[in-house]
């Protein structure tokens, strides 16, 4: 991870040190800014404006400007907020364990089968994962069909339409990206560190915990934040496999608009989800920095 960045920086400073010949043209900020402008204008109009509008509109309600939407959001959806955070953290913990286990295994062993198979869910869109899990985990779904044949129990409870199905679906969809990123970081750790530790009698588990993970800290952080954000923001999976109550926040947001035409509370819920993401990312970052400092 470090070497290419260093090299890049070295070549950059070499470029800066070298006076460019006149025919090479200017490399100042202005032409660069002009080239970026179309993309940036698009981002500003189609993303930043609606984003700011969601924040501003969350303070506007029939009662005027104020915290009315937030008061309503908390009184109606406090349980859903806690449920959302709980489900997301549980999924995140499972994704972390699975992806570190697979990445650790593949760092020590070459196994093309595993290296290929784990990536499959990466290419299946969230919506399809939702539908497939609906078919797979329903009370009369494929999983129960097989389980009831093995166990001989005719009627088993379904995992779909509850927290279990939600967590399974999120983990199924999210662990490949985390594994891909973490494995990339593990592979860029030099063999000599690992061999030294193994020669001194460390187990592989200990090498993962005390050498690979700390060195790959920043990448693991990025993988976990990406997982967290896409879990907490996903609408399709909870719509298709979630329970009718309690539901994840994106479902509340969507229903607030489509059934109640209540944009203020929907926006307040949106801003609350921004805050949750920022707070957890911040907490995680701080925790990581402290770990590294110790």
């Amino acid at each position: 991870m470090k070497t290419p960045a260093l090299m890049q920086r070295a070549s950059l400073s070499a470029q800066q040190a070298m006076r460019r010949p006149p025919w090479a043209g200017g490399r100042s900020g202005l032409p660069g800014m002009l080239l970026i402008l179309p993309a940036l204008a698009m981002l500003a109009a189609l993303y930043i404006y609606p984003l700011l509008s969601s924040i501003v509109m969350s303070f506007v309600s029939d009662a005027g400007v104020g915290l009315e939407n937030y008061r309503k959001a908390f009184s109606l959806y406090l349980i859903d907020m806690l449920y959302t955070v709980g489900i997301t953290i549980l999924s995140l913990a499972i994704v972390f364990v699975i992806s570190v286990a697979i990445a650790g295994y593949l760092r020590f062993n070459r196994w093309p089968f595993l290296n290929f198979v784990y990536r499959l869910p990466l290419f299946i869109p969230f919506l399809i994962v939702g539908h497939s899990m609906r078919v797979f985990l329903a009370p009369h779904g494929i999983l129960n069909l097989i389980l009831s044949r093995i166990t001989g129990i005719p009627e088993l409870p379904g995992l779909a339409f509850g927290w279990g199905g939600l967590v399974i679906s999120y983990v199924w969809k999210q662990f490949p990206l985390a594994t891909l990123l973490i494995l990339g970081a593990f592979q860029s750790v030099e063999d000599s560190y690992i061999e030294a530790a193994l020669n001194l009698g460390s187990s592989r588990l200990r090498v993962i915990r005390e050498i690979l993970l700390p060195i790959s800290g920043p990448t693991v952080l990025v993988a976990m934040v990406l997982t967290f954000v896409s879990t907490i923001g996903c609408l399709t999976i909870p719509l298709l496999v979630g329970a009718p109550k309690p539901v994840m926040l994106p479902v509340d947001m969507s229903f607030r608009v489509t059934y109640f035409n209540d944009w203020g509370v929907a926006n307040a819920l949106g801003v609350i989800s921004y805050v949750i993401v920022i707070v957890l990312a911040y907490y995680y970052l701080k925790h990581m920095v402290r770990e590294e400092g110790a």
């Binding site: 984003l51 949106g270 989800s273």
Partner: peptide, 19 residues
């Protein structure tokens, strides 16, 4: 900034985009 649409909850943005 270009990463933001993928790294931050999208749903509220889409809701406001629709209005």
């Amino acid at each position: 900034l270009f990463l933001m649409p993928q790294a931050f909850p999208q749903l509220p943005v889409f809701i406001n985009m629709s209005s």
